[in-house]
Design a protein around this nucleic acid. Sequence first.
DNA 1: AACATACATTTGTATAGACAAATATTGTAG
DNA 2: CTACAATATTTGTCTATACAAATGTATGTT
Lengths: 156, 156
Amino acid sequence: MNIEKIIKTEIELPLPKKVVINLLYTENWIMDKINIELKAFDISLQQFNVLRILKGQKDKPANLSTIQERMVTKMSNTTRLVDKLINKNYVKRAICESNRRKVEITITEEGKKFLDKVNPIMDEFENRVTSNFSTEDLILLNELLNKLRNSNSQIT
Amino acid sequence: MNIEKIIKTEIELPLPKKVVINLLYTENWIMDKINIELKAFDISLQQFNVLRILKGQKDKPANLSTIQERMVTKMSNTTRLVDKLINKNYVKRAICESNRRKVEITITEEGKKFLDKVNPIMDEFENRVTSNFSTEDLILLNELLNKLRNSNSQIT
DNA sequence: AACATACATTTGTATAGACAAATATTGTAG
DNA sequence: CTACAATATTTGTCTATACAAATGTATGTT
């Protein structure tokens, strides 16, 4: 279904508006699907992403600022996000000895096990959601999204 | 900047995962920019969209369910969203006489004036954010996003 | 050492959103 | 006409997010 049909407007929208709306709509559509996948595991995509970042650290602890800069969608309150992961026993927090302002966050064994369980589900989801796309389509969409952001990096 | 650099991972991600992350990241990036534009007008994108929907009704009132189905990103609480627009005197609410369960929401003159002020800003933003895109790029991105959603309409 | 400044995180608060339950109204089957 | 289901919206509650201010720690200057 095209965007005009979705938002039920009779007038033909200008292309730039159509693309912006389509991007917002499609992201929302895909987020809904992701949330359905993750719901069974009682975790949000944000929390899941933090676990992935920590796993990527390979047992080297990460501080809050590291986590924040690596998150796909930045959020304002990483402290409380980590709190929730601590409550679930997926991560642990310690004060950094060399710089006591910093905090060191590490994934636990339970967190790793959890990730190993959820990761294949997400991989399978990503394959499924893009299953009608050819490799060329995937590359093209990826490049177009990059181009959209990059051509704007200097503009405010 | 490509996605691997953005999330600072050393490993090359599989294409489907890359596309999904890129989509989420780019939407977030564009939403940040939209919020900056709208902040000066003290309105959220959701509220702005409702006003546009009501204007599109051409003085014919809309009920809550109509608004909800036309919104780009569905939200669970249209009542309270409309409450906020009422507080700003941009819309008014009345009980539908033919079916008293329904509610009729209409844009006010003040709401129309406000829209006329903000619409050009958003149009200009949409043009600016896509300024390095050719018409072909715009059409292509639009079609790829449609294809992504459509090929999945039957899958759960 | 005393002070200001910068840094990293946490906390407070106000607003937004998800979801379920409650309310009110209408339509319909017996 | 009554009971029951369906519809449309509202309300309550809990969680998430944005943003500012506060806290605690480190660094550089005089």
